[in-house]
Design a protein around this nucleic acid. Structure first.
Lengths: 178, 178
DNA sequence: TTTTGACATGTCAGAGTTGGAATGTCGGCG
DNA sequence: CGCCGACATTCCAACTCTGACATGTCAAAA
């Protein structure tokens, strides 16, 4: 029970505004998908666990068995604790980077193709984020400020990935000529 | 059985050179730790599964029960298939980025402290990689070429993270003044 | 010769993640 | 009114990952 960021992602979302599991899923898909994706089964399961643990409570019940959850004081305290006292884990797995270590098992042509396709993948992702940037109505509320920071991170990250991949392809070319 | 990169990381390492589970662990720690960390139990468990699946074979046995594994033709084919035909998954979880979405639940001072500590964490990581760069003897072999590419990725990534975090802290400051 | 440290493997429980299946309800459009 | 699509929850099997525990061997330094 050390990491478990899903839990905190849910606390954070519900601290912004109470919601049902269904609503939560949509919020995960629309805003957190690039930072912490979650599936339905995970969300509903966690909703139950967090409620039993006293970090959430069912604030209202609606039609179709809808249960609207809100964060308790204890939940808010836990969110705060996580944000201020827990150092983010540095571990980040990347199967894209992993492949780079094994590029020597491909022909130069195949390896270059991989790097170029990585560059294009990153570029595509970058364009998608630019699209988001254009379409989102940046109100002045606190939520948008954070969203903008996260979006900028994505923009910089995808740009960096594209540049790196193109650079790496070029390095490979140079190494081959030697 | 779609993703499972650990499996392919092991195939890749063993394709470079046959090794025991113990050796493999050391290689994971020294070179792959930033792309795909693995624990002992995972490595030994996977070694068994891969052997049973015919992708690996025990090439030699040594003292202390040492078993040296090597990749079979089938294993090499699978490695190649993974490298060329499987698109890297774009999903990357980041609890550091996740926190950014919830910065509005902190005071401005706390939020800024978080971003600054992120910048410093990234800077520290960056310096560690520079240290690696200085100390590694860059031979001309294929392996080093890949390692250099991966190292450069790390260098660019950590630099980007530091710059972003400092920028974000500044944005927060500006937003507060409005 | 004893002891220490590196070598070496194996097993386990518990937590997290994935993807899918099953089930049912409500609101509004034709 | 009947149907469709969105709303809404619950359960499950299989797999991955973490961290710890357990066990034993060999080489060489003290």
């Amino acid at each position: 029970m050390v990491a478990m960021s899903l839990r905190h992602a849910m606390l954070g979302l519900l601290a912004d505004q109470p919601a049902s599991g269904y609503d939560l899923m949509k919020r995960f898909e629309s805003s957190l998908s690039n930072a912490w994706p979650a599936t339905q089964s995970q969300v509903y399961g966690e909703l139950g666990k967090l409620t039993k643990a006293g970090l959430l409570e069912v604030a209202a019940e609606g039609p179709r068995g809808r249960k609207e959850y809100s964060v308790t004081d204890e939940g808010r305290a836990e969110l705060h604790r996580w944000l201020t006292e827990t150092p983010p884990s540095t571990v980040r797995r990347s199967d894209a980077l992993l492949r780079v270590f094994f590029l020597n098992h491909l022909t130069p042509v195949e390896a270059t193709a991989y790097l170029i396709s990585e560059a294009e993948r990153a570029a595509g992702h970058h364009r998608a984020l630019e699209e988001v940037e254009r379409n989102v109505d940046w109100g002045d509320d606190a939520l948008s400020v954070n969203g903008r920071l996260a979006l900028e991170y994505g923009l910089r990250f995808t740009a960096m990935r594209e540049e790196w991949a193109r650079w790496a392809a070029e390095e490979l070319r140079k190494a081959r000529q030697r």
